[in-house]
Design a protein around this nucleic acid. Sequence first.
RNA 1: GCGCCCGUAGCUCAGUUGGAUAGAGCAGCGGACUUCUAAUCCGCAGGUCACAGGUUCGAAUCCUGUCGGGCGUGCCA
Length: 553
Amino acid sequence: MKETIVDLIAEFFAGTHPAVGLPSRIPMSVPKDTTHGDLSSNICMMTAKAAGLPPRDLASELAAWLNGRLEGKATAEIAGPGFLNFRLAQEQVQGILRRILDAGREFGKSDHGAGKTINLEFVSANPTGPPVVVSARAAAFGSALARLLQCAGYSVTSEYYLNDAGAQVRALGGSLRARVRELAGDPLELPENGYHGLYLVDMARTLVAEAAESITAWDALPEEEALVGYAQWAVQMIQVQIKREMERFRAPFDVWFSEKELHASGKVLAVLELFEAKGLIYEADGARWFRSSDFGDEKDRVVIRSDGRPTYFLADAAYHLDKLERGFTKAINVLGPDHHGHIARMQAIATAIGAPAGWLEILLLQWVTLVENGEAVAMSKRAGEFVTMADLVEDVGVDVARTYFLTRRRDSHLEFDLTLAREQSSKSRVFYAQYATARIAGVTRKAVEAGLSIEFGPDLDLSRLDGPEELALIKFLEQFPAAIISAADAREPNRLFNYLVDTATCFHKFYHECQVVTEDVGLSQARLALTRATAQVLANGLDHLGVEAPERM
RNA sequence: GCGCCCGUAGCUCAGUUGGAUAGAGCAGCGGACUUCUAAUCCGCAGGUCACAGGUUCGAAUCCUGUCGGGCGUGCCA
């Protein structure tokens, strides 16, 4: 319907105002105020000047032209300063429900992405400790975005970059060794930049209990290799834990990409050669530098330290080259708030490795402040004071935690009030939407008992759905695919969540006004079909966000 | 200093890429269960969209500046 109106408008302008340049997409939106009709366009206000007419005059000309041509019994009218509002006839709205029922489980999917391939990297926290709360935000955001993009027709690879090489990992190895020796009775001597977290004590106990012979073997090695031994064992342990927690949080990954293997494969030095060949490397102060300032970064960056070791930055360049070579049409990186200084240099990398403009898209998440009993909870991984992702999930549950993150915009600094989440978890917005799915399941059980059919074939008479709550709900459901595309394209899963909550509102109102299972079999059957379509939208939508849609609460 | 993000109701946050009277939840007040789940619904109250300019038919949204808060600015990752 929307498309045909847009086409008609284009036809009108081509015929009567050929000189007017139309925008690439003629705006057509669903007004938030339902008294403004079912669809609305501001095209006349945009083109009035070029057409040499006051907006309302142009609108009335267009409305008159359209009213003979719109399909069905749809109407166009002028409103306000020059809006054009369209109203659908009742049968057209009922036809929408028919299409939703026919689409069934597929409703919401589209080929909008046209098979484009996206690499979506998120979380990628260092495997030097258990995932913390910011990682939970990233996990919720990334996994939801991955699902949304898939639903919108993109082919998505979810990826976790494991920084299992480098100085922080060595510090982890040293910290673990210190804890092992502490268990043996030595005084605790954590290395500089070491990790103070008590999780390393537990890990040391496990190591002593299960692999004491490794300790003996490592300690016989030269210092550097000994640390590597400890570090790799620790990383391995933590990595397993990260995977387990991500899965429990419904954030699965397709690929776990190891920085260590990137070094081992020679790809890190290969990208250095590529940059050298392009004349982007020079020496200064004993180190080798990459000319990232040529690409808009504020300064050049070291890629090979004066001691000969490559930097994290160089490995990152190799990593992105690898992604490019794997053929993704786009790479999206979800980064934590402390990484905004990296954007310019990462874009410099993308350009230098020959990626097309816009290939690398960086999404920054903002901080999560944990609040408990009215006070901010201090968090520092190195100092060993933090609330882990596992603590959070244990505390409030996966659904509430994901909802907390997914109802907020990614760039809002959000406050996660643990006390509130605990005390009032039953008031979380997620329960509002879930309650709707549970209610529908309850109605369905009741309907089956009453002998109604849960098959909604083409002979079903939907014309009985003529009440305002019923029609409003149908119109709301229709927006589901558009809500997914909008959320996917804007990289804002929160839009879908908001849509689902609004859908639940619409449903609760309908539920309050309209008894589904009644003596009137025809009406009951039609209303049951409407609840089925609603359940489909809610369940599909919640599933994309990684939230459960329970049948009982 | 320079750079990035944020500033919307008492609190936590939305606001469909510039639209019509700025919205929800919580907290407060008042209504609705003999009914398919009241974890719901209906109503009242609550605002200088940080501030000042600018762009235009039209700005919470875009541009500039100011003030606040957060973060970054390593041969750490």
